[in-house]
């Protein structure tokens, strides 16, 4: 093995000349270790400062606020006295994300299954590439497309839901208007988080050992039974964390939602009607017109979004980590 290595630039002095004693860490290593450790520390510093600066800069607005920050739906931070709260933002963020998850999780898992175990091998590689491309499309383009081209098609769906499922409160539409709704924003979000979900689940599906698949088939399982018997149990933690990472992305998505929703500060349960707002979209839309307290209020809402996505992402990582330990034991 060693004979195949090219000698490196400078000739290494023979051990006789150099001796076998000396500093245990040589200068080159010290510098390199210092640089690389510094880079690692910088990441910690960045994360810490994100938290610190958001908290510090949120305080002025929170102190000036005369409404309840958590339960108020109003957003007038630059009035005096300032009145603002995140209730409408929470509702809109959660509703768009729920719509996105309901659509994207099953479809994402279906795509992953299709690529990993149903499609012919050669087609599968190409299809994997295509779904990855979907992930590379910038979100502003999703927003434009959702507004100009998806909306006209979705209006029919909205009407249909109102006509046939209108007895379910969320599908009721009393306005007769079906554009710029939470439903449409949720559908666009679903398309945007699909690649995240399907890429991660696909990775786990491919890792399912061939032995387990053959064990199921040899017992006389149909392909679907094999999927349920061998693939899903093995891939469950991966599927859960994929869904949570997708959720994290949906919660924080800004521009596409800002373009599609017709921003309003109320809690409207009719998701096919225009209206709704999310943390991220609200920040982008209000930023350039906000005064000092307005900016601070937006920072405060951003802090809440930061904490929510942090919790979701840490949860996803925890699920993956548990799995790593599990498979390490085998």
């Amino acid at each position: 093995m060693s004979t195949t290595l090219e000698p490196t630039g400078t000739p290494v002095p023979s051990s006789a000349a150099r001796g076998i004693t000396g500093a245990s860490v040589r200068p080159g290593d010290r510098v390199f270790l210092g640089l690389s450790r510094g880079a690692g520390l910088l990441i910690l510093l960045t994360m810490a400062s994100i938290a610190i600066f958001l908290v510090v800069k949120a305080i002025p607005a929170l102190q000036a606020n005369t409404a309840n920050f958590l339960t108020s739906t109003a957003w007038f931070p630059d009035q005096s006295p300032a009145v603002f709260g995140i209730a409408a933002l929470v509702f809109g963020t959660v509703m768009t994300s729920i719509v996105a998850m309901v659509l994207a999780v099953p479809v994402g898992i279906g795509i992953a299954l299709f690529i990993a175990h149903y499609a012919p091998r050669r087609l599968a590689t190409a299809l994997g590439f295509v779904t990855d491309l979907l992930a590379a499309v910038p979100s502003i383009i999703f927003g434009m497309w959702g507004l100009q081209f998806l909306t006209p098609h979705m209006e029919g769906l909205g009407e249909w839901l109102n006509t046939y499922l209108g007895f379910i409160p969320i599908f009721t539409n009393t306005l007769g208007l079906y554009s710029k709704s939470i439903l449409i924003a949720g559908v666009v979000l679903a398309i945007m988080i699909l690649p995240t979900i399907s890429a991660i689940t696909r990775e786990v599906f491919v890792q399912v050992p061939r032995d387990h698949i053959e064990a199921a088939l040899a017992l006389g399982a149909t392909r679907w039974e094999m999927v349920r018997l061998s693939i899903f149990p093995f891939a469950k933690p991966g599927m859960i964390s994929a869904a949570m990472l997708g959720l994290g992305r949906a919660l924080g998505e800004t521009i596409a939602v800002a373009l599609i929703l017709s921003a309003s500060y109320d809690i409207n349960r009719h998701i096919t009607e225009p209206g709704g707002n999310t943390f991220a979209a609200n920040i982008a839309l209000r930023w350039n017109e906000a005064g000092p307290i307005g900016l601070s209020a937006l920072v405060a809402s951003g802090l809440v979004l930061f904490v929510i996505t942090l919790v979701v992402n840490m949860g996803a990582r925890a699920v993956i980590a548990r799995r790593a330990e599990f498979s390490g034991a085998n």
Binding site: T46, I50, G252, T254, N313
Partner: peptide
Amino acid sequence: VMTGVPSVVVGL
């Protein structure tokens, strides 16, 4: 964790 921080929060 950093991977999951929304881009708008980084802007903030």
